[in-house]
């Protein structure tokens, strides 16, 4: 049923797309129809696969680093009032900055290769991971803390046996958000300066008025993001709910 409705929605979207192309009669370098994009995608499947692979590596490494950094930061913040006072305002302030404005700087610092894109993905997911896990750590049901107190638990043991497990569902929702943001981060990085990856391919196709290839790359990115989100969803299912 779920798959059926997804299929129906896809067909509906394709139909609207085709209708717009047919009704407006726009030239194909402005708006190519779905049939043409599909054809282009098939003809360039190896090219697209190659660039998808590059982007995927950036995203996965970025997700791993971003999650680790976010988890460590959240634990530090939850553990120390000083860290909360000193670091939290800074974290919030960085969120007010447009991250993509940093992309050229990252390229300058880290070069054209993989790491400037990884850094971009990390930057963009670091905050959602940190803040969701931190919130979870600070919202431990007070009854558990009371119980632990009467048991003479050390703060460390409370963190490890109660606060962290109780915060895992929050961390899971942060990671699910991150799965959506990380590809955006990597593509922004590629956009600013690179010679590989889906972002690069989109920019290149656009520059050469190969709008059909640009669409094919963009749709591939969309499908990649959805698949990634589904994988992370499944991977975090135990953390998120089954234990409740």
């Amino acid at each position: 049923m779920k798959y059926l409705s997804a299929l129906a929605a896809t067909i509906f979207a394709l139909a609207i797309w085709q209708a717009i192309v047919s009704l407006t009669g726009l030239p194909k370098f402005i708006l190519p129809g779905p049939a043409l994009v599909a054809e282009t995608w098939w003809q360039n499947r190896w090219l697209i696969a190659e660039h998808t692979w590059i982007t995927a590596i950036e995203v996965v490494i970025g997700l791993a680093f971003g999650t680790i950094l976010g988890v460590i930061t959240a634990l530090q913040l939850a553990n120390s009032r000083a860290a909360r006072v000193l670091v939290q305002p800074m974290l919030v302030f960085t969120q007010a900055l447009p991250v993509f404005a940093l992309a050229p700087l990252l390229t300058l610092w880290l070069g054209y290769g993989l790491w400037s894109k990884v850094a971009m993905a990390v930057l963009i997911i670091y905050f959602p991971i940190t803040s969701s896990f931190f919130d979870g750590l600070m919202r431990t049901p007070s009854g558990y803390l009371d119980l632990a107190r009467t048991m003479q638990a050390s703060p460390r043991a409370v963190l490890w046996h109660i606060r962290i497990p109780a915060a895992l569902p929050s961390l899971a929702s942060g990671m699910r958000l991150a799965a959506v943001y990380a590809p955006i981060g990597a593509v922004i990085g590629e956009w600013v300066g690179s010679s590989q990856g889906l972002g690069y391919l989109m920019l290149l196709a656009n520059g050469r008025a190969k709008t059909d290839l640009m669409f094919a790359a963009m749709l591939t990115l969309g499908v990649f993001s959805i698949v990634l989100h589904m994988i992370i969803r499944r991977a975090t299912a135990r953390m998120a709910g089954e234990m409740r």
């Binding site: 119980l147 048991m151 497990p165």
Partner: peptide
């Protein structure tokens, strides 16, 4: 201490919940 809310940890088994105190004290 025992309250109206049983305060059992939902992620831990019955056995783990019963021996929670020792684990919390290391």
């Amino acid at each position: 201490y025992m309250a109206q809310d049983d305060l059992l940890l939902p992620w831990a088994t019955v056995a783990q919940n019963v021996s929670l105190g020792a684990r919390l004290r290391g």
